[in-house]
Write a protein that binds this DNA or RNA. Structure first.
Lengths: 385, 385
DNA sequence: CACTCGTGGAGAAACGTATCTCCAAAGGCT
DNA sequence: AGCCTTTGGAGATACGTTTCTCCACGAGTG
C-alpha cells in the first residue's frame, strides 16, 4: 500500500524516505488534490459524501495524522492553554502544595479537554526560555501579584489572559474570584453566633488578592463591632512558619477564643498549638480554616472549613478563556477592546470582566459550642448562583 | 521605529497590517538578511559579535518573539511532553486523586522545565481529538495497563514513550518502576519482626503492574513462610469501596494481626475499621500502608508508610524521555532500534530499558509493638542507590 | 441559443522559521 | 602574480497544512 503512495509521487522532491504519510501522499493515493483531502477530512468544502468517505478511508489506510505544527502555523491556533501559578515566593513550584491548586488544576484540565484544548503547566518565574517556545492560545494565571510583568507581557502580545483571583494592576482579559469579603464576614458572624468574644486571624504576608481582601475584611469587621484585631501574619509558602505563627497567636496575652486561619495547614497547626496550651476545641477555642482537604472531617474534633470551590473556579476560568480565544477576530492583534467577544461588550454599560463565585462553609464540631441548641444553618455569602 | 520596518518591506506582499514583528521585519530593520537574524539570535552561524549584538538589539526593540509554531514545523521539535495516567477505571481524571500522582507530576514538570521542555497533561481515554492536535516530542505514561492501544500507537508513530511502572505488553522506549517485590517483602519482614503472626493484605482489582507485582510478592511470601493468605481486593479508584474492604478484612474469622494496605487511603480506613472492632493499634493490630501523604505522621497513632519516592521517579522518567528524544536521529522514523540513544546500546549485552528505583519505609508507631526493645532500624530494599 | 447558476474540484499562495548551498572579498602563502 | 583559506553573509528551499481564488461543466431559464 505504501508502495503505491510512493510511486505515485509526482516530483520526487529530493530523495524522499518513507517517513510519515503527509496530506500529499493521501491526495496522491486517493487520486484527488490536496485541497480535496483537507476539505474532506475537516468537513469543510462542498463535496459529495462519496468523495469524502473515500478520502477518509484512504487517509485511515495510510495512517495519516495531520501535523499539528503545520496546522498551528497556518491557523494560528494551537489548542494549548498555559496554566501558571505566580504567588508564594520564589519556590520552583508551589503547585499541588495546597489542595486548592490541585483541585483547581484538575478541574481546569478537564474543562479544557472538554472543549478540545489541552493545558500546559508553566512556571511563572522562569524566563522567556520556555514561554517563548510554546504556541499558546491563551493563559490561565492563578493569583497574579500586583504588576505581574509576565501577565503584562502576555497581554500586550495579544494572548488572552484570565486570572483566578482578582488582579491588582495587571490588565487581564477577564478574572474570576471568590467573594472573599463576604466569606470572611460570614465566618466571623458564624463564630460570633457560636459565642466567640474575641476572634483571631492567622493570615499571610503576601500581597496577593486573597490574603489582602480577607485581611481587610477582618479588620473592617473588627472596627465595626469594636473588637481589637488579634492576628499573626507569616509567609504562607513556609509550612514551618505556619506552625510557629499558630503557636504565637495562642501564646498572646490577649489570646483569642476563636481563630480563623486563611491557609490550608492552619487547621492542624492550630489544633496542635491548642493541645500544647491545654485548650479544648471547641470548648475553649473555636476553630475555622480555609481548606479543600477532607482530612478535617476526620480530625479530633472535626474542623469547620471554608471551601473556595476550586473546581467551579477552574471550570469557569477555562471557559471564560476559551470564550475569549474563540471570540477574537484574528486581525488587528494589538487592539485591546477586540479581545473581548461581542457578548462581553453588547450590554449598555458593559459588565466588568470579573465574576464572583460563592464559597461554602462546611460547619463541623470545631466551631460549635456544645450547647443544646440544634443545628446551625451555614451562612451563605450573597450572590449565590 | 516600526514605521521604518514597515516602509522597508521589499514586497508589500498583500496589505500587511502591523501585526506582530516577524523575523523579516527584524532583518529589514537591521539591514541584514533573514539568515543573519536567525543565526544571530540562535548563536549559530559565524558572525562577528558586533553584528550579533546589533541584531539582538533590534529584535528586542521591535519586541520580536519567534513563532513557536513555525519553529516547531521547521525543526520537528516542539519542546512539549505529554503526561498521562491510564489506570483506574474510566473516570475522567484520577489525577491528583492520590498524592503519589500529584507529587510525581510536580517533579516531572520541574525536571522537564529544567531541560527546556513543558508538560502537557492529557487524558489517556480521550480519542485522538486532542492527542492528534498537539505536537508532542515524547510522552510519559503513568501505569499503563497491558496492551494499551494508546501507547502502542504513539510508539508506532515514532513518539518516544517512557512509562512509570513496568509495562505489560506495550512496547516502550524505556520504563522506570519501584522494586515492588522487594518493598513488599521488606514490609512483611518488618511486620514479622514486630511480632505479626498472620499478615493481611488490602489490595486492588486492577491489572496494573503495581497491584499485580505487590500481590504476587505477598502470595509468594505467604507460600514461603507457610502462612495462609488473608487479603481483600477492591477497585482502587473507588474510595468508598476501600473503606468497605478494610472493614471486611477485619471482620473475617481469620482476622489478621497485621495489615498492609496498597493504597493511599487504606491507612485511615483501616484505622477506622480497627476502632469499630475495638482493636488497638499497634497492640492488637499492626498497620502499614503505601502513601505519600504526611497526614499519617499525625494520626492517632501515627502510621508506618511506604513511600514510592514519586519525586525521584518523576524526575528519572522525564530525564530518560528527554535523553531518548534528543538522541533520536530524525531520519528513518520507523526503525525501533534507532529510538535509543547510543549509550543505551553500546554495552555488550545491552542493559534492559528499565530502571528500578528504591522505596522508603517510614517506620512509625503503628508497626512497632510497645516492647522495651529500643529502635528498630527500617529495612531497606536491596539496590538502594 | 445565450445566459446564469450550482456543483465539484484544482492551483497556488501564504504561515514564519531554520538551514543548506553558495558567493564575494580579503588576506596569507609560495 | 596566482592560489588557497577564512570570514561574513545572502538566496532559496522546505516544513505540511489551510484557504482563497478560480475554472470547467452540465443543467435549467428566458
Amino acid at each position: 500500500m505504501t508502495a503505491a503512495a510512493n510511486q505515485s509521487g509526482r516530483r520526487p522532491t529530493t530523495s524522499r524516505r518513507l517517513e510519515r504519510a503527509g496530506i500529499r501522499d493521501v491526495a496522491a493515493a486517493a487520486g484527488v488534490s490536496i485541497t480535496t483531502v483537507s476539505d474532506a477530512l475537516n468537513g469543510k468544502g462542498r463535496l459529495p459524501d462519496e468523495t469524502r468517505s473515500r478520502v477518509r478511508e484512504v487517509a485511515e489506510r495510510l495512517g495519516y495524522r495531520p501535523s499539528a505544527a503545520a496546522r498551528t502555523l497556518r491557523t494560528g491556533r494551537s489548542g494549548l492553554i498555559g496554566l501558571t501559578v505566580t504567588t508564594y515566593g520564589e519556590e520552583p513550584f508551589t503547585f499541588t502544595e495546597f489542595a486548592y491548586f490541585a483541585e483547581m488544576a484538575r478541574a481546569a484540565t478537564s474543562a479544557a479537554l472538554g472543549r478540545g484544548y489541552a493545558l500546559v503547566v508553566l512556571p511563572a518565574s522562569s524566563r522567556h526560555d520556555v514561554w517563548g517556545n510554546i504556541a499558546l492560545d491563551g493563559t490561565v494565571v492563578i493569583d497574579p501579584p500586583d504588576q505581574d510583568p509576565l501577565v503584562s507581557e502576555l497581554y500586550r502580545s495579544g494572548v488572552p489572559v484570565v486570572s483566578d483571583g482578582k488582579p491588582g494592576n495587571c490588565p487581564v482579559t477577564a478574572w474570576v474570584d471568590n467573594d472573599h469579603e463576604a466569606a470572611v464576614l460570614g465566618i466571623l458572624d458564624h463564630l460570633s453566633e457560636a459565642g466567640a468574644r474575641r476572634i483571631g486571624l492567622l493570615t499571610g504576608t503576601s500581597t496577593d488578592t486573597y490574603t489582602r481582601l480577607s485581611t481587610e475584611a477582618y479588620l473592617g469587621w473588627c472596627a465595626k463591632v469594636g473588637q481589637e484585631p488579634v492576628y499573626e501574619a507569616y509567609p504562607a509558602h513556609d509550612p514551618a512558619a505556619g506552625a510557629v505563627a499558630a503557636d504565637r497567636l495562642l501564646a498572646r496575652p490577649d489570646r483569642p477564643d476563636a481563630v480563623y486561619g486563611l491557609f490550608d495547614p492552619n487547621g492542624t497547626d492550630l489544633l496542635a498549638a491548642a493541645r500544647r496550651y491545654g485548650l479544648r476545641v471547641p470548648d475553649d477555642l473555636l476553630l475555622v480554616c480555609c481548606s479543600e482537604s477532607d482530612v478535617y472531617a476526620a480530625t479530633e474534633p472535626p474542623i469547620t472549613t471554608l471551601s473556595l470551590k476550586p473546581r467551579k473556579i477552574g471550570t469557569t476560568v477555562v471557559n471564560l478563556l476559551i470564550d475569549a480565544i474563540e471570540g477574537v477576530d484574528s486581525g488587528t492583534g494589538v487592539d485591546i477592546a477586540r479581545l473581548f467577544p461581542p457578548r462581553f461588550r453588547t450590554a449598555g454599560t458593559g459588565p466588568p470582566p470579573g465574576t464572583l463565585m460563592p464559597t461554602e462553609l462546611i460547619v463541623r464540631a470545631s466551631s460549635q459550642r456544645r450547647s443544646p441548641r440544634t443545628t446551625v444553618s451555614p451562612p451563605r455569602p450573597p450572590g449565590e448562583v
